[in-house]
Design a protein around this nucleic acid. Structure first.
Lengths: 220, 220
DNA sequence: ATTGTTGTCCATCATTGGGTGGAGACTGGG
DNA sequence: CCCAGTCTCCACCCAATGATGGACAACAAT
């Protein structure tokens, strides 16, 4: 071998649905000394299959995936392989997903705008058993920590609000009285630290509690 | 040469701020017969410089860029080189940007989730002087066509609404009476085909009239 | 100049929305 | 068992919102 004395390479699985991005990651990683891409997956189900097949040291995973979300994939894999290490890689997304991913056991969270050096450094850091959260993400996490969890009902109402429903419509939809809707709104306004439904809607979108995509297709 | 009788390759400039994605595009394109990446740029200003330097046949460009937006880049380049051909490549973004990009002279609009084949096919199509708009995009464009343009003042008000301001606050901010704010709201509600401010806010975000990012940082 | 159009502005009125207090159901610990 | 805590539900009150109608100025077109 030309390489004098290297350790075993870090075996990486890349999970990402965007072809271009996946290609980019693989191309970047495969020229790096000590890192080896052992598998690729374009959706959640495939990700789990590939993981079982290759048992990689590190799984680089996007949160927005077809079939299963990244968070679900992390949860399921950790169920059977608790020592699995994940680096979440996403364009932007809401705070909610970041939070969930870290709770599910992701060790690092990177934005797609990062430099190659950051990516490599993070892979090595996580492989060494440590975590890495960029300052920008940490800041948003901190904000989130202060806020309380929404109850299921409050979540239902918030979802309707984001979809532009009036209190009366929400009441009909959820089969409760309009007064009750107002109560839920009142308490979720408090939890989201906002003062009216419009702010609640934008806050929900910012945090990823509801996604912009879900607005296009009316729900069945 | 090993290749028997090829035409001159299509010379492509890649403009994209996400390192990973840019790498992916370059890696993908450079293995394609008849396509040659002649330059890369990570922001709007660099894009214009690289364009002048290389005069590519096709410019593959993201809309969300530092320094100058993709739309601005397209406009400026077409000012001096009207025959320049652009393929807009973006993750998702709002309808507004799609519309503006096409108006500015982009010939095609692709989502980053596309297959390699689609990308290559589109490059060839555009290089041959034709356009290519995927059905999903075309649909959204069609929706947009029916809607009227907002007046500057209406736009101001809408922006404030998305930022969660009350009518009174908007009135103070814009130095007009609250009644006037209501008038503007009323007419912009009509133009956006919605019935209240919350729907207006989400519609504005969907269409990219206002972006989620701009919500985080309070404007100066 | 005059007509038409469009954008900005304002006032009044009915409706909606948010604030407050409080009742019954259900949970987990002591 | 009983208590504290939480979730869900509802009614009443007043402020904010949206609908309507109309005044005024700027501008284009003939």
């Amino acid at each position: 071998m030309a390489i004098p004395e290297t350790k075993a390479p870090i075996r990486v699985l890349v999970v990402e649905d965007h072809h271009v991005v996946r290609q980019g990651l693989v191309a970047l990683l495969n020229v790096v000394e000590g890192v080896q891409v052992v598998g690729e997956a374009a959706d959640g189900v495939e990700a789990i299959a590939q993981f079982r097949k290759h048992l990689p040291n590190i799984t680089l995973i996007d949160l927005r995936l077809p079939r299963l979300t990244g968070v679900e994939v992390i949860q399921r894999i950790r169920m059977e392989t608790p020592q699995a290490r994940f680096i979440v890689l996403t364009t932007y997304d809401g705070d909610e997903d970041i939070f969930r991913a870290l709770q599910a056991g992701a060790r690092a969270y990177l934005l797609k705008g990062m430099t190659t050096e950051e990516l490599i450094a993070t892979i090595r850091t996580v492989h060494a058993g440590r975590s890495h959260i960029p300052p920008a993400i940490a800041e948003r996490l901190a904000e989130r920590m202060g806020t309380e969890e929404l109850t299921p009902r409050e979540f239902d109402v918030l979802e309707q609000i984001v979809h532009g429903k009036s209190n009366k419509e929400i009441a009909t939809e959820l089969e409760i009285s309009e007064a009750t809707v107002k109560t839920h709104i009142n308490s979720l306004l408090g939890k989201l630290c906002v003062t009216d439904r419009t702010q609640a809607a934008t806050a929900a979108l910012q945090r990823g509690i509801v996604t912009l995509e879900s607005l296009r297709k009316p729900k069945p």
